[in-house]
Design a protein around this nucleic acid. Structure first.
Lengths: 245, 245
DNA sequence: ACCTGAACACCGTTCAAGT
DNA sequence: ACCTGAACACCGTTCAAGT
């Protein structure tokens, strides 16, 4: 599943340096440090590379040492998700601007998630388990309520809003989540070749789109994704107004 | 990670029945049978419960026997994703109807994915690796091209269309993917209690929506999700028409 | 063509013990 | 309060060998 070890980047005993001044090497073990390191490992080698034993190794410590700072692996993964969520810089909620006020909210979320694409799937289940996620949801609900959506629609749409962002990041073309950094380029090329080898008569448009699917600017990709969602809610809100129940 | 064994549901030697007529028990080992069983296990116990050794056990066979039918675990997971994708009943592409022709396409996809929510994450990366997925994409691209979207926007939007469906299924309220069937109800109740315990002054709308987030009808949830996407593309297409470059 | 046995290098986790 | 050692029950996978 994971390539047979080799290439490690993490902090390690530089040599068998004696106690005093162990150089840059491993930082002190702590819950925060463990979570940070886990996110780093996921960023560079994929989420599958995150294991209790591996992280312990990076701290030059026994695997069981981690269990003092973290309940178990599931809790570590949950904490990674919440850490990402808490890194969102919450925007202030403007008094007016209608549904367009959702835009900064979604942009900030994209900004935070895109820093850790490989760990973004972890966020999905943890949004409502941290303050930042709840505040973000509450803001979205406020904006949607102002636009006239009832409780049920608000719930659905706020959910869809945040999940659309998760989807954008996880499904970003060329992100190749869960593939280690080093193999990403090769992976992309293999995919592109596969598409190029398809029968042109059966999939003319698909082949035509292949290039656009791979070399795409992340900034416009995210902007367009957010735009699509906003266009959707705006249209739905307009329908409500024109034929009110 | 996975609860400590116990409760298994799969086919098993009923007793130490002698060769001839081993009753209903384990079907013949084959690539198809392995994939089917893996999907069943994921459906009932979550994707994490799918292991080479476990599936082998369910067939009363040595783990290494599976390697004859399947290259390795990654290939098994990929095959599960493609199997789901191939179970989509492709709609015929109507000649007219504009962007609304996307609807049956998305509905069929939801239909197929919703049968295996726990394994739906596997579909994401495999869409373009099977005929059905490519055909579906080609159809989406055709509809989007007819609506006037250029190559880049077509590529983006077809991608967004299929991923939105994956997201709808994976993020379905109360689906609790990756949690074994037996614990799902308990999990839902824990979440609901957590929301109920929140400070009402900070999260008034969130708490108000809590009920709507949990007891929701899957049919309208999916219909609304598809509607949101269609409203979005339709609005974007309309903008293009009114101020053409 | 299809399956087994033995072995290897990994996992997560518990529990008693050390400082 | 924080960490270690030894042990257990799991993983995926290889390789030589059986029928």
């Amino acid at each position: 599943m994971v390539p047979p070890a080799s290439a490690r980047t993490g902090p390690r005993k530089a040599a068998k340096a004696t106690s005093a001044a162990t150089s840059a090497a491993a930082p002190a073990l702590s819950r925060e440090a463990v979570i940070d390191r886990a996110l780093e490992v996921a960023d560079h080698e994929g989420l599958a590379a995150v294991s209790i034993r591996r992280i312990a190794q990076d701290f030059d410590v026994t695997p069981m040492a981690l269990y003092w700072h973290v309940k178990n692996k599931d809790e570590l993964l949950a904490a990674m998700g919440e850490r990402i969520m808490d890194s969102v810089e919450l925007p202030e909620l403007a008094v007016d601007g209608g549904l367009q006020r959702l835009r900064p909210l979604l942009e900030r979320l994209v900004g935070a998630l895109a820093r850790h694409p490989a760990s973004t799937p972890l966020v999905q289940a943890r949004i409502l388990h941290c303050d930042t996620g709840r505040t973000l949801t509450e803001q979205a609900l406020t904006i949607l309520a102002d636009a006239g959506f009832d409780t049920r629609r608000r719930a659905e749409l706020s959910r869809a809003a945040l999940q659309s962002v998760v989807m954008l990041v996880v499904g970003a073309p060329g992100a190749e989540i869960d593939v280690p950094e080093v193999e990403r380029q090769a992976m992309r090329e293999r995919k592109q070749q596969m598409l190029a080898g398809l029968p042109v008569d059966r999939y003319p448009l698909l082949i035509d789109s292949a290039a656009a699917m791979f070399d795409c600017d992340p900034a416009t990709y995210y902007a367009d994704g957010i735009e699509l969602f906003l266009a959707g809610v705006t249209a739905l809100a307009a329908r409500r107004e024109h034929r009110p129940a």
